[in-house]
């Protein structure tokens, strides 16, 4: 065991894993964090806590993660390179580890242009791949990025994101290979709506044998409305929403949109489950965390190990 986390144990035991996502509040409200977390308890093996996603200031991922851990819910801390240099990242990771955090998702981070402080300065001292290597060296070599020794090292189960739908498509899998080489243990993909393209990507993943080196969790997200489906299709770079999905949401109409969104999500889970090399799903229902239990249950993923 590299970290001894629940997620690592479940994946290593060969169970189909379920992770979910929790967006911390734009306030100091601990209640919001606890309420969302309690909803997910027993339905997700570990819960990602976003790090100021879309560059909007929110409660710190590590702080919220530590709150989850105190209630027996395992957090996956997200760490981006946007707001911290290598000094701050390593410092925060020592702190996170000391607080009992065992899973870490390494991200480059959304550009601040999309957030609520577009005039801020960004850091990007490291990129996600360099971050992964740094965390792996902290764990396995007991070394800081500068080469100095760490007396008591952090033990993280190291994850990364990868987007099978952005471009250049033929390079995406090679980039995943770079992340594997840098030291990841698991991957959570961008939201899958285009299962066909995802299958093709997985085929390339298998050709390189990457599915045998790391655990791959397919990202899924329930749609709330036809408008949301269209917006994602047309306005979110790196998001691939096929016409037939938009059509299903449109046909469902306003009243049944959420229900259909959940149905689509379950259908996608059923399909990706059958793809060789997919070790689990990562359900991203930001600001709709309460729907996760229904999805997990209807997808036949209960009880959790």
């Amino acid at each position: 065991m590299k970290s001894g986390s629940n997620l690592e144990k479940i994946l290593c035991a060969g169970h189909f894993a379920v992770t979910a996502e929790l967006g911390p509040p734009k306030s100091v409200s601990a209640e919001v964090v606890y309420k969302k977390a309690e909803t997910l308890k027993g339905y997700a093996d570990a819960v990602n806590i976003t790090d100021c996603q879309t560059a909007i200031v929110r409660m710190s991922s590590i702080a919220a993660g530590s709150m989850l851990a105190s209630r027996g819910i395992e957090p996956i801390i997200q760490m981006t390179c946007r707001d911290r240099n290598r000094i701050a990242i390593q410092s925060d990771l020592l702190g996170a580890s000391a607080l009992g955090v065992k899973n870490l998702l390494c991200l480059t981070g959304d550009h601040q242009k999309f957030g609520n402080h577009p005039q801020s300065k960004n850091v990007f001292d490291l990129d996600s791949i360099q971050l992964i290597k740094m965390v792996k060296d902290m764990r396995d070599e007991k070394k800081f990025q500068c080469g100095e020794e760490i007396k008591v090292e952090p033990h993280f189960f190291i994850g990364a994101a990868e987007n099978p739908f952005s471009e250049p498509f033929e390079f995406r899998v090679l980039r995943l290979a770079k992340k594997v080489k840098a030291g990841i243990d698991f991957v959570q993909t961008q939201v899958v709506y285009n299962v066909e393209k995802f299958s093709k990507w997985m085929e390339m993943v298998r050709e390189l044998g990457l599915h045998e080196k790391v655990f791959i969790l397919a990202g899924v997200a329930p749609l709330k409305s036809a408008g949301m489906a269209k917006y994602m299709k047309n306005n979110v770079p790196g998001m691939d929403v096929p016409d037939k999905i938009v059509e299903r949401m449109t046909v469902a109409g306003k009243e049944k949109a959420k229900e259909e969104g959940v149905n689509i999500c379950i259908d996608i889970i059923d399909q990706v489950k059958e793809i060789k090399g997919v070790a689990g799903v990562h359900i991203m229902a930001i600001e709709w965390e309460e729907i996760v239990p229904e999805i997990v249950e209807k997808a036949g993923l209960l009880p959790r190990p």
Binding site: C81, R82, T108, G109, H111, K113, N122, F124, D127, S128, I129, Q130, A161, E162, N163, S166, E167, P168, F171, R175, K178, Q190, P237, G238
Partner: peptide, 14 residues
């Protein structure tokens, strides 16, 4: 935009 040395990120499209 992010000065990546190991790009591209997931936001590269068209």
């Amino acid at each position: 935009s992010k000065s990546l040395l190991n790009g591209p990120c997931g936001g590269s499209q068209d």
